[in-house]
């Protein structure tokens, strides 16, 4: 409980809405650039890495609440739990010192991607009938055609796209952190 209180300083409470806005803005930007990624959890991973697992989890969960409220993507609520775990993992990896070298950053992204794929597949399969209503459904169709059931096909689709997405997310967060002013870096080290 103590670490929970410590993570949620006024600074953190102001940082989280900004991180959520970054999730949304970058997510839309990536759509405009027609990239085969989502990159809608950059802010979540950033808060996890900078502040800690609790703050990361809160950012992920509340980001999906905000997606739902904004009317841009009301179904986001169904994925709030997965987003929370992504943020928590980023916090754990940050604490473990995985954000220090490119190799470790890729490993952290890979693990997060695999976990996200495994947790998302049952939601896609049982809540949304095995589809996501987006372009990735073509990939799901290919795996169904190959003989997999709804859960298997969504797991395979997530297994293909999630690790790439989360590795890219972690690499971008790492690149951004390199550019943080020294004064702010010192502040986060103290949190």
């Amino acid at each position: 409980m103590n670490s929970l209180k410590k993570e949620f300083s006024t600074f953190t409470l102001v940082l989280i809405p900004v991180a959520i806005a970054i999730n949304i803005a970058v997510g839309q930007l990536v759509l405009n650039l027609k990239l085969p990624l989502y990159l809608d959890s950059i802010g979540t991973v950033l808060v996890g890495v900078l502040i800690g697992p609790w703050a990361g989890a809160a950012t992920g969960f509340l980001a999906n609440v905000v997606w739902t409220f904004s009317g841009l993507f009301p179904q986001a609520m169904a994925w709030a739990g997965v987003a929370a775990i992504i943020g928590a993992l980023a916090g754990v990896f940050g604490r473990a010192g995985l954000m220090k070298s490119v190799g470790m950053v890729v490993v952290a992204g890979l693990i997060t991607g695999v976990v996200a794929a495994v947790l998302s597949a049952p939601i896609a399969a049982y809540v949304f009938g095995g589809v996501t209503g987006s372009g990735t459904d073509a990939v799901v169709a290919v795996f169904r055609a190959a003989g997999l059931d709804a859960l298997g096909a969504n797991l395979a689709q997530g297994g293909v796209s999630e690790p790439f997405d989360k590795i890219a997310t972690f690499l971008i967060v790492w690149a951004v952190m390199l550019g943080l002013p020294e004064r702010l870096k010192a502040r986060f080290a103290a949190e």
Partner: peptide, 18 residues
């Protein structure tokens, strides 16, 4: 509640900035 309401207020400005 502060986090959710603030995020809802500021995200359009972030889209603009992007």
């Amino acid at each position: 509640s502060y986090i959710v309401l603030t995020a809802l207020q500021i995200f359009p400005r972030f889209q603009e900035r992007a």
